[in-house]
Amino acid sequence: MEVKVNELSEKQLDELIERIVISIRKDREEERKQFKKYAEHNTSLLLRYYHKLKGHTNSVKEQLEADQDTFWNHNWLDLSALMQNKAKTVKLMDHVDYALEVYEKVCKNSDSSEERRRYQIIMRKYINENRQSDQEIADYFDKDRTTINRNCKEAIKDLSVIIFGVDMLNYW
């Protein structure tokens, strides 16, 4: 049975519009939650693989220097897709390094000892050359491992905002 819009009363139309608006709002809220979840997951992956990605970016720079004026640099040999992927990695890692610098400043200027500790935890766990386990970090700060894990999760949330921007905020 097909109903035409002109057959609906004003009240029915208003109810229909309200249902549609509510449905759209629910969908948008779910999309925001999913984005936030994925962004935090991706931030965690960026940190976990930080050294491998940085190694990749270093190899790109070395490869570009080595390939200059060689067979691989000829116009008829198209490696653009590979180089685009490598260029994306370089840009992303530059952005991650910038985000870490911003986060360091934010944490160091904080009145909260917990927030100041968060940056150090991220550095010790993911970034420093001699990475430490959660237990080693907990021992260093004389805290329980669960406190270190909670601080690390909060730091990842904070970094996600810096890396992915305003879309990480749920209230807009």
Rank of each mutant, 00 (worst) to 15 (best):
A87W: 15
Y49E: 07
K86E: 09
N58K: 14
D94H: 05
E65L: 08
H41I: 15
A81S: 12
L77T: 02
A39N: 03
F71V: 07
L82V: 05
S113I: 03
R48T: 11
K26D: 11
Y126I: 12
E30C: 11
L45N: 10
R124F: 09
K36V: 11
L45Q: 09
N75A: 14
L100T: 04
E7D: 15
K108G: 01
T89W: 04
K4N: 12
D67N: 03
Y49F: 05
Y126P: 05
N58A: 12
A66K: 13
L45M: 10
S59L: 07
M123N: 08
R116V: 11
L77I: 07
E29N: 15
T89M: 01
D27G: 13
M83H: 05
K105Y: 05
R19N: 09
L46S: 02
D69M: 13
Q84K: 14
S59K: 12
F35R: 02
L16M: 14
K61A: 09
N42W: 03
A39M: 05
E40M: 11
R25A: 09
R118M: 08
Q63R: 15
L47D: 02
D94E: 07
L53D: 04
I127K: 12
L92N: 06
R116G: 02
L45T: 01
S9W: 06
A81H: 14
A87N: 07
K54N: 07
K33I: 15
V102N: 01
D94P: 02
E115R: 02
N85M: 12
E30I: 15
K108R: 10
K88A: 04
M83G: 00
N75V: 11
E101A: 08
M93V: 00
S112K: 06
K36D: 10
